[in-house]
Amino acid sequence: MKFNKSALVMILYILFLMLPIYWLINMSLKTNQEILSTFSLWPNQLTLDNYMVIFTDPSWYGGYINSITYVIMNTVISLSVALPAAYAFSRYTFMGDKHLFFWLLTNRMAPPAVFALPFFQLYSSVGLFDTHIAVALAHTLFNVPLAVWILEGFMRGVPKEIDETAYIDGYGFFTFFRKIFMPLIASGIGVAAFFCFMFSWVELLLSRTLTSVDAKSIAATMTRTASASGLDWGVLAAAGVLTIIPGALVIYFVRNHIAKGFALGRV
């Protein structure tokens, strides 16, 4: 009896989550004419035209390529600087460590709206405006602190005796880190990468401010199309559905660590 009640709660909650997404998929499979003329719970004339528009128009599919490019760049940069720092925070005390740690976190608290204009001026003045690397660097503002925080949480769970034994066995620091330590916190690295991916992927304001043509993100393409040429609901819905897919794939891969990851490794 108890199981049934739990299952019922979960089914209701998931239904609440899935309904709007179903509606988006429903819209994306209809023609614009059908969307505006008849109201139906499923497409009467199933069409893939909306998706064809996206896959054949470079200004649409280019947006996806640009987004994925800067998201991957950002993930790589964030993780490679966060790994040594998180190790330092989890193993050593040093002058100002607590202040530094909190200061890093404050950057996660900074409203992107505050940084939009200064970023625009900074990256324009160094000639990086409208490049992938500009967006990737801008997103490190909130991703690096988060990666440090998550990795530190996971690294704290690895006993220090392992480090010491490795040094006694004659491992140098870098061999130890690569061969012994990284495999031990592999799930932590996976979770941190997942979060960097996620927050860079979902962000709109900075990526829209820092790009115009060459590196325009899919999010920017969607909002600009919406305001420029009236509303092509079908194509907009199809574009939305396609942005959900990478996220769904990434969740599937980290599903067993996701709960611990959201707790920032602190359970």
Binding site: M10, Y13, I14, L17, M18, L19, P20, I21, W23, L24, M27, M198, W201, V202, E203, L204, I218, A219, M222, T223, A226, W233, L236, A237, G240, T243, I244, G247, A248, V250, I251, Y252, R255, I258, A259
Partner: peptide, 24 residues
């Protein structure tokens, strides 16, 4: 299945969340 479906809204770009509800 529960984990993946529950986590799904978190991975949707924020402007698409807006679009979804704008349409819905």
């Amino acid at each position: 299945l529960c984990l993946v479906l529950v986590a799904l809204p978190l991975l949707i770009p924020w402007n698409v969340v807006g679009t979804i509800w704008q349409i819905f």
